[in-house]
Design a protein around this nucleic acid. Structure first.
Lengths: 132, 132
DNA sequence: ATCCTTATTAGGATATAATATCAATAACAG
DNA sequence: CTGTTATTGATATTATATCCTAATAAGGAT
């Protein structure tokens, strides 16, 4: 048996979808528990991680703070306000985006960070050998 | 008096520059303390933050792990191996980079995350009012 | 060179975020 | 319905980073 459909998974995912402000894991916990007090923090964290790992949600890492989650999975980017911490969507091609953002969005862009995740050649080799 | 040139600042910055593996703050602490045991963790963290905030270093946030630092400040990006955790540089224009990376680098790209930091219009307003 | 002001530091305590542990629960295949 | 085992709840623990405070020292003024 591989994976089970539990009430908790459905509730956490639906709650995330209903929240449009790029909530942190703890904000999702609070929202879930407002309707289902018996669902534990560990469960919400576990399910959010699974959603992020499987590509059903995005995890957004912010300097000096908790991870935020986004149920929108189409390719897009995020702006994070250094003062109030709000996270907002950006839906544009990325080249020279920082400048465009400064010019057109009203944001004052101070910096950005792009990061790819995946397997390096060495680890892919190991994975293949384990699988074969 | 605005800012003071301390031995600690020089040592931390020089140590970061000498480390080419995108070290975490704790790795910088260990390296610094191997030569200067009296320099405290809090000091190294403070100085690394200051370097990142002033643009003299880059902070790279990684899912499920500590921040990494990079003394190279020219615009470039990073690949993070999900298995071994290594961080490597990417020096290419970013459009459709994920696909290019998969094809040419030997990495298997599973996802990426781009994030801008700055001030949102509301916070800029507040800042301006405070300054005026 | 010496004094003064105050930015900075050392070291430990504390805060915060996320994960590990493990017994109890419940999904679902047979 | 039953058995297997993935999943959960609750809490402990870890990991990462910051806060706090007295002591130190940078660098301007004398």
């Amino acid at each position: 048996m591989q994976e089970r459909n539990t009430l908790q998974k459905r509730i956490v995912h639906e709650t995330l979808i209903s929240m449009c402000n790029h909530p942190t894991a703890d904000e999702v916990v609070a929202e879930v528990q407002s309707s289902y007090p018996s669902i534990s923090r560990a469960t919400v964290y576990r399910i959010l991680n699974k959603l992020a790992d499987s590509g059903e949600a995005l995890r957004i890492r912010i300097n000096n703070g908790a991870d935020h989650f986004d149920h929108q999975t189409f390719p897009h980017y995020h702006v994070h306000c250094s003062v109030c911490g709000k996270v907002a969507d950006v839906a544009m091609p990325v080249e020279e985006l920082a400048d465009m953002l400064s010019d057109t969005s009203g944001y004052k862009i101070l910096g950005y960070s792009l990061q790819f995740d995946g397997l390096c050649p060495e680890c892919m080799k190991v994975e293949e050998e384990r699988g074969a």
